[in-house]
């Protein structure tokens, strides 16, 4: 009774009972089993392997297989493995742009930009018409509102269609900046190294001169401050 009361009072559902199976010991045992099987079957990546006949206490460590029909429900919402953009035609929305096969020749996206601009202009025009209709014949406005709604939905659809493209584009720019950073770092390191080597070379010629001048005590004094300078350089 007490337990039941607690369950209804908590904001989130209780964790599933098998969470206690994930002890460090079981996890490492499970990983060993996976590795063994992978070696036996000659598969590179052990994590892709599905183990059969697991002992009872390890059974819950293996994630369940993907749903066969590609759909599942969580919190009464249906999700799909393939997260596809719903087609406009499914939702009884008029499509106001040509098929993807008929536009964007050579894979470029200028047509998309043109269509988007056209839609934006249509939105304004339709809004103007709507205000006019509302002033003269409010009953007819409903149709115009549907038009505007369709225009907006079309606009959003075109934008969402473009998202994968934009994602790749951001990846490219991120890689480019990473490349620039790496190169700059390499150059910086090389510069510092060259400088150190030049100093070293300069000193080696000095040493010869000094050896000509001779006396080791003097030499020691002379190189005292230089040694400090090198130590600083090294840092």
């Amino acid at each position: 009774m007490d337990e039941e009361h607690q369950q209804t009072a908590s904001t989130w559902p209780q964790p599933p009972s098998f969470w206690k199976d994930f002890t460090p010991d079981s996890v490492s045992r499970f990983e060993d089993l996976q590795k063994e099987t992978a070696e036996r079957l000659g598969v590179q990546d052990p994590s892709t392997i599905r183990l059969e006949n697991l002992p009872r206490e390890l059974r819950n460590l293996q994630p369940p297989p993907e749903p066969e029909d590609g759909a599942w429900r969580v919190f009464s919402d249906t999700y799909r493995l393939q997260n596809e953009l719903p087609q406009l035609d499914d939702g009884q929305i008029r499509r106001l742009f040509p098929n993807s096969e008929e536009r964007d020749q050579d894979g470029k996206h200028f047509d998309r930009a043109t269509i988007l601009k056209r839609l934006a202009k249509s939105l304004l025009l339709n809004f103007l018409e709507l205000t006019g209709l509302l002033a003269t014949n409010p009953e007819a406005a409903h149709e115009k509102i549907t038009d505007i709604r369709d225009l907006f939905i079309n606009f959003h659809h075109l934008i969402n269609e473009y998202r994968p493209h934009q994602a790749r584009e951001s990846l490219i720019s991120m890689m480019q900046s990473q490349l620039d950073r790496t190169r700059a770092e390499t150059n910086g390191i090389r510069d510092a190294k060259d400088k150190a080597e030049r100093v070293l070379e300069g000193l080696s010629s000095l040493t010869i001169q000094d050896q000509a001048h001779d006396t080791s005590l003097e030499k020691d004094d002379r190189y005292g401050p230089d040694g400090e300078a090198w130590a600083m350089l090294m840092e």
Binding site: G107, H109, R112, A113, L116, K117, H165, E169, I172
Partner: peptide, 14 residues
């Protein structure tokens, strides 16, 4: 719209 990134890149280009 006109400054959307990569308008002149196709998927293959990318």
């Amino acid at each position: 719209i006109s400054i959307l990134p990569g308008l002149d890149n196709s998927e293959q280009d990318q």
